[in-house]
Design a protein around this nucleic acid. Structure first.
Lengths: 219, 219, 219, 219
DNA sequence: CATGAATGAGACTTCATTCAT
DNA sequence: GATGAATGAAGTCTCATTCAT
C-alpha cells in the first residue's frame, strides 16, 4: 500500500458506509454538509468573521442543531483543516517521484502543500494561528492528522533510504518532524506576509538542503 | 566580542544615554516602568486577562497616557518578550562551552531558554501564540529580536565549526533557523500541555542530534 | 388522627392503589423514578444546572418520554419539594411536644425543617427562589402543599390552645400564616448567605416569641 | 425629625450637591438619567424583557458607557426599586396618623405601599422575584433599603407605644420585621395572581390584627 | 504632557420542549 | 407508549483605543 492510499482519518473519511444504517448515514451526511458549509464560509470570510449562525443557515439547519454534530466552532476549523490539508497532503504524496533525490522529493511534497495553502491564504492563516492552540475538543483531530502526515513524510524518507537516496541510520520519524518544523516556520512567515512566495521557496530549498545534504549518500 | 555581549536591541536597551536629553530619559524611564508593570501583570494573570487599564494603574499613570509611550497592547507583549526572552538567551549564550561537541552546545542553549520559559508557562504560552501574529507595530521588534538570537545561534555554530566541531561548509544561519524551528515546534507542544517536560527534553535531544550528527566531523 | 398522620398530598402519595390497574401503577412508578432521579440531580448540581436530558437519562428513559410523565421541569422541582419538604414537615410535626409552651413547640417545628433544608442548601435555595413563581402547571402542587403544612401548623396551635398554652380566641390559621411568613423571610436570608445559622436561630427565636408571647396565657 | 424626613439612602439620594464639583455632578446626573431610563423601561416591558442596550440608548449613551455607572443589570433593578419603593414608603410614612390605633397605622402604611406596587404590577413582580436573590453588587443596596424602612416601621411602632397604642415592652424592630414578613408573603401572592386585591386587603387586615391585637392596650 | 470618560461591536452556545416516526 | 433529533431565541458585558479638555 502506497503512502497516499492509507486511510486518512477514521473519523472523517473512509468510513465503510455499507455497514451503516440509514440513521447513521444521515447523521454523517449532515455533519459533512455542515463542515462543507463551514469550510466554504471560512474560505470566503475567514474563520473569525464567520458566525456559527451563518454556518447553520448555510447548512440548512437550525442554529442549535449545529451543536448536535459539532462540539464547537473550533471543531469546525479542525474538520475543515483535516479535509483541506488532507487533500493537499494526499495529492502531494502522490506526486513524489521516488527516483528523485531526497531533497527533490521533500521539496515536491512541501511545495505542493504550500501552494495549496497559498490559494487559501485566509484559511491557511487561521490554520496556523488557531490550530496549535485549539482546546481539547479539537486537539485530538489535529494531532491525529499531524501524526498521519508525519508518518507519510517518514514513509517517503524510508523509501528514499531504501533506494539509497538517504542515509539508512537516521531516525526517519524525527527527521520528518524536523523538516515539518522548518516548513511550518516558513509557512507562518508566508501567511503573515513577512516573507513573499519566492523568498519562501528559496529559503525552504536551502532549509531542506541543509537538513538533508549531509544525510545524502554521495555518488 | 563574545556572542552574549553584543547589543540586544536598539529600541529597548543599550541606548547611548549620554546623547539623550533629560526629557528623552524620562520618557524612556516611563516606558520602562510601563513595560515592567505590564510584564509583571502578564506573568501573574496572562496576557489576555490583563487590561491596559490595569497596566496603566500599576505604572501609576492614566489610561490614556499609556498610549503616549506604547503603540498597542501587543507592543507591550513584544517588549515583555524582548526583555524576558532576551535575558534567557543572553544567559544561555554565556553558558555555552565551546569545547563541547556541537549537539551539547546547542542543547545547553535551547534547554536554558526552555527552562526559563517553563518557569513562566503562562507568559510563554502568550509569546508563542500571539507573537507570530502581531500586527505591524510590534512586528519589527519581534523580527529584530529573532534575527538577534538567530545570529547568536549562528555564531555559536560558526565557533563550533572553527573548533572543528561542525562541518565547515554548512550555511550556519540556515542551520540556526532549522534548529530554532525544531525547538519552537516542541516548545509549542510543551506550553500547550501536549508534551511533558521530560519528553520534550528527549525529543529535543534527538531532534538536534538528527540535525547535527551528519554535520559533525568524526574523530 | 394526629397532625402528622393526615395524608400529605393526593397527587404524589397516599393513592388508593388497590383501585389502580397495572398500567396506572406502572405509570406512577415511572413518574416516581423520574422524580427521584430529578431530586438527586437537583441536590447534586442544583436546579438550574440540571438538564431535563440528564434527568431522563438518569431515569433510564428517552428525553421525550419524560414529558409523558411530567408537565415541565418546574413540575419536577415542585414534586421534589413536596417530597423533601414533606418529609421534613411530617417529621417536624411528630417531634412536637404538646406539653411544652407554644413558643417551644413552634420553634421545634420550624427549626427541624430549617435543619432539613440546611443540609441541602442548594436545593433549598431553588425552592425559595423558584417555587413562589412557578407557572400554572406546578402552582397547584405548591399551594396544596402550603395549605397542608399551614393546616398542620394551625393544628399544633389549636392543640396548644386546647392545652391552655395559647389564647383561645386568636385565629389559628392566620397565626400559622404569620409564623410561616416570619420563618420564610429568615430562611430566604439563610439560603442566600445573608444570615448565618446561629443568627438565624436567634432571630427566629425572637420573632416567634414576639408573635406569641402576648397570646400566651400567663401562669 | 419625623420618620419620613430622615434621609433615605446615602448613595442614591440626599447628596449634598453643593459640595460636589461639576464632574461629580455630571457623573451623578448621568447615573440618574440611566436609572430613570431603566425604571421606565422596566415598567413598560418588565425587567427580563428589557435589554441593557435599550436602556443605554434610552439614556442617550453607548452600550459600554452604561457600565461605567452601573455594575450590572441587576444593579439597575435595585436602584429602580430604591427609587420607586422609596417614594412609596416615604409617602406612606407621611400618611400615618399617630392618633389612630396601631393596627390602623400599620394598615395605612402597608396598604399605601401595596397600592403603589399594584400600579406597577410588572415591576413589582420583578422586585419580589429578583431582589431577594441579587448577587453581591446589588445586595448592599437592597439591605440598606430594607433596614431603612424597617427602621421607619419600628419608629412608627415606637411612637404608637409612646402614645399608649402599643405594648411598651415588645421589641419594636422585631415586630416590624414580622409585620414586613407577613405583608411580603401576601404581596408575593398578589403579584403572582394567586390572590386578588380584595382578598389581599382582607388577609392583610387579619394578619396585622393577629400580630398586634394582643399587644394593644385595652381601653 | 496627561487624563479618563466614552465607545460599541460582538457571537457563542445552551436547553426546555415538541412531534414525526 | 417511547423516542431523540430538531429547534432558535436570547443578550450580557468587556476592553483596547481615542480625543476633547
Amino acid at each position: 500500500m502506497s503512502v497516499a492510499d492509507r486511510p486518512l482519518l477514521s473519523s472523517d473519511a473512509a468510513l465503510d458506509e455499507t455497514e451503516l444504517g440509514r440513521r447513521e448515514r444521515n447523521k454523517l451526511d449532515k455533519r459533512r454538509r455542515i463542515v462543507a458549509a463551514a469550510t466554504a464560509l471560512f474560505q470566503e470570510k475567514g474563520f473569525e468573521d464567520t458566525t456559527t449562525a451563518e454556518i447553520a443557515k448555510a447548512a440548512g439547519i437550525g442554529a442549535g442543531t449545529l451543536y448536535l454534530y459539532v462540539e464547537s466552532k473550533e471543531d469546525l476549523l479542525v474538520s475543515a483543516f483535516v479535509n483541506v490539508a488532507g487533500d493537499a497532503w494526499r495529492e502531494a504524496f502522490d506526486l513524489v517521484d521516488s527516483s528523485a533525490d531526497a531533497v527533490s522529493q521533500i521539496m515536491t511534497l512541501l511545495m505542493h502543500v504550500t501552494d495549496h495553502h497559498r490559494a487559501d491564504r485566509r484559511l491557511a492563516r487561521s490554520f496556523f494561528k488557531e490550530l496549535p492552540f485549539v482546546s481539547d475538543s479539537g486537539r485530538a483531530g489535529v494531532e491525529e492528522f499531524t501524526d498521519w502526515f508525519l508518518s507519510g513524510l517518514a514513509s517517503v524518507l524510508n523509501a528514499a533510504s531504501a533506494n539509497g537516496k538517504l542515509d539508512a541510520d537516521v531516525p526517519k520519524m524525527m527527521l520528518a518532524h524536523n523538516l515539518y518544523a522548518q516548513w511550518q516556520l516558513l509557512m507562518r512567515r508566508l501567511v503573515t506576509d513577512r516573507l513573499d512566495y519566492d523568498d519562501m521557496v528559496l529559503q525552504l530549498q536551502e532549509s531542506v538542503y541543509v537538513a538533508l545534504w549531509a544525510l545524502t549518500p554521495k555518488a
